[in-house]
C-alpha cells in the first residue's frame, strides 16, 4: 500500500458525505410517507389542534419577553464558554511556553500558575456580570416582580 500522506482537509470529506446521505434519508422518509400514506381532505381535520374545539385566532401572538432575555444571556455566556475551550486545550503546555517571558524555569511555581491566574481574572469578570443579572432577577421565571425593569 503506498504511503502518501493525504492532505488534512480530506478528513472532512466523510462528514460532507454523511450530510448528503443524511439529507437523502430524511428526504426519502418524508417523500415516502407523502406518497404511500392516504390523503382524505376534510376541513375540520386540517385545522390546528385546540382540544377538539374550533380554533380561535392566530397562534402568532405576543409572548413573554423572558424568552428574548434568555437568548441574549445565552449569547453572552456561550462566548465565554468558547473562550475557555482554547485555553483548556493548551493549559498543560502553557508553563513551558510562558516560562522564558517570566524569567523562570518551566517547573517554577510562577510559570505553572500563570495560566490559572490569567483565567481566574477572566472568569472573575464574567462572574461579576453573572451576579448582576442574578440580583436583577433576569433569571427568575416565576416573577411578577418589578426587579426586571432593565
Amino acid at each position: 500500500m503506498p504511503n502518501q500522506p493525504l492532505p488534512y482537509y480530506v478528513n472532512y470529506l466523510p462528514v460532507l458525505l454523511q450530510i448528503v446521505v443524511a439529507c437523502l434519508v430524511a428526504g426519502g422518509m418524508v417523500a415516502l410517507s407523502a406518497l404511500l400514506g392516504k390523503h382524505r381532505y376534510s376541513r375540520t381535520k386540517m385545522q390546528a389542534y385546540e382540544c377538539g374545539m374550533v380554533g380561535t385566532g392566530d397562534a402568532r401572538q405576543r409572548f413573554s419577553v423572558k424568552f428574548y432575555m434568555v437568548a441574549m444571556l445565552f449569547i453572552l455566556f456561550d462566548v465565554e464558554a468558547i473562550f475557555l475551550i482554547p485555553w483548556a486545550v493548551i493549559y498543560r503546555k502553557l508553563p513551558a511556553a510562558i516560562a522564558p517571558a517570566l524569567g523562570a524555569g518551566p517547573r517554577d511555581f510562577s510559570a505553572r500558575m500563570f495560566g490559572f491566574w490569567e483565567m481566574l481574572v477572566y472568569i472573575g469578570i464574567v462572574l461579576v456580570g453573572f451576579f448582576y443579572i442574578w440580583k436583577k432577577g433576569a433569571l427568575d421565571w416565576n416573577a411578577t416582580t418589578e426587579k426586571t425593569d432593565f
Binding site: 390546528a48 385546540e50 397562534a59 456561550d78
Partner: peptide
C-alpha cells in the same frame, strides 16, 4: 411554522431550555 398555540408554546419552552 405549525401555527398552533400548543406548538408555539412548546417550541418557545424548548428553545429556551436548549440554549440554557
Amino acid at each position: 411554522s405549525s401555527n398552533s398555540k400548543y406548538s408555539l408554546l412548546g417550541s418557545l419552552r424548548a428553545s429556551a431550555q436548549l440554549i440554557s
